[in-house]
Design a binder for these strands. Structure first.
Lengths: 221, 221
DNA sequence: GCATGTGAATAGATTCACAGCG
DNA sequence: CGCTGTGAATCTATTCACATGC
């Protein structure tokens, strides 16, 4: 935690750390003290060599002949992912999806806190959703400053998404998760990830039509 | 369309085809007759070399010195993705997310049709959602057979997800999209993809904490 | 003895750069 | 002449296999 070198962690590994974390939380609840790469691999749905290689990028946290100490590894991965602190998020676009996201438990579960819900539609403003009143999109800068918002979630229709992204960036938000089916562009230094339902379905139909099996998803970014 | 060899298309390419498709639909609406790899790349948010390489796996559909014929390419990609036919889907778990998914327009937009909504909770059964009455999970086999359902969408809480997946498989569903935050296992021959909100957020916090920028998402699988 | 940690080998994806062709 | 199509080069990720050290 103090004098460690800043290792470059492959993005494929970063994308799997949350999986390991979730698995470790489960076994920690069962009071299991240590876990082998083999068992962790099973829980996370990957193979053991990958687990060991991934964890080796974080440091040598295992014990040969024994395995990994669950609580310790749990903490180290949490820290690596930045989950030892709280992350205020804003959700923009309070339609069906925005509603669902606002009510999503397990949001709060893992250190994320919905600081505000915003919508450009005046008829939605003031509506209580998940215990918060929807605020006008124009208040974004104040909301971001006030709550130190670092992450913006876009749940608007596609045509509005780029403008919302621009406003988030202008307000100083450095991480954006986009649910709108649109390709967005953001300046350097801003991270952008997307979740797109219809793309996922289309990938499935590709393989279904082929009578093939879709390869193991490699969710990376 | 008749005597073509079955080219093996890299999974990374398959994951990008839906992006090209969406971009092509946009330009087709604007009545643009042809498009260069450069322009398509810009719309899809990738680079031109990738576009050309990806499209070359489908066949030589471009014209040197000119570009690609929009309508033709649109059709070929649709066909490759299996979108020239309709795909009945079932959504299981009609909580917040299930509701949002059931109401998602652009679902129907691209050849997907919600055949039924199911939930294991008797108190939800019968409730009208998005013009359909929620049906009991036990009716899954009939629903699948009746509507020729090929795709199942899991929107249940995590603890229920594996059982639902097992039931989908038992009913003959060969493609599953999982929104529950759980690792599922399915037999060979069944395709499984996942969408996980909290994993995406955790990847963002990793890079945010580093003061780094998240790499370009490579949504594959 | 046993499971980690890691170089080396392999596989897969991206990018380069240019030949090929309309 | 311009843009596609594609081998070759590069980069990234996965897997192997075994030396290492508790």
């Amino acid at each position: 935690m103090r004098d460690e070198i800043r290792r470059r962690i492959p993005e494929a590994t970063v994308a799997r750390l949350p999986l390991y974390l979730r698995s470790l939380i489960e076994v920690a609840e069962a009071k299991v003290p240590t876990i082998s790469s083999e068992r962790l691999a099973e829980l996370a749905g990957v193979n053991a060599a990958k687990v060991r290689k991934d964890l080796s990028y974080l440091g040598s946290y295992g014990t040969r002949g024994v395995g990994y100490e669950v609580e310790y590894l749990l903490y180290e991965i949490s820290r690596e992912l930045g989950l030892t602190q709280d992350w205020p998020v804003v959700i923009i676009g309070i339609g069906n999806l925005g509603h669902a996201l606002a009510n999503y438990r397990g949001f709060t579960a893992r250190g994320f806190r919905v600081a505000a819900l915003l919508d450009a539609d005046p008829s939605k403003v003031g509506e209580p959703v998940a215990g918060l009143a929807v605020r006008p999109l124009d208040e974004l800068p104040e909301v971001v400053a006030e709550h130190q918002v670092a992450i913006g979630i876009i749940a608007t229709p596609a045509p509005a998404a780029q403008e919302v992204a621009d406003r988030l960036v202008a307000a100083g938000v450095k991480s954006i998760l986009n649910f709108a089916p649109a390709v967005l562009s953001v300046p350097d230094g801003v991270s952008l990830r997307k979740v797109d339902l219809s793309i996922e379905l289309q990938i499935l139909t590709f393989y279904q039509q082929r009578g093939d099996e879709a390869p193991e998803p490699a969710p990376v970014g």
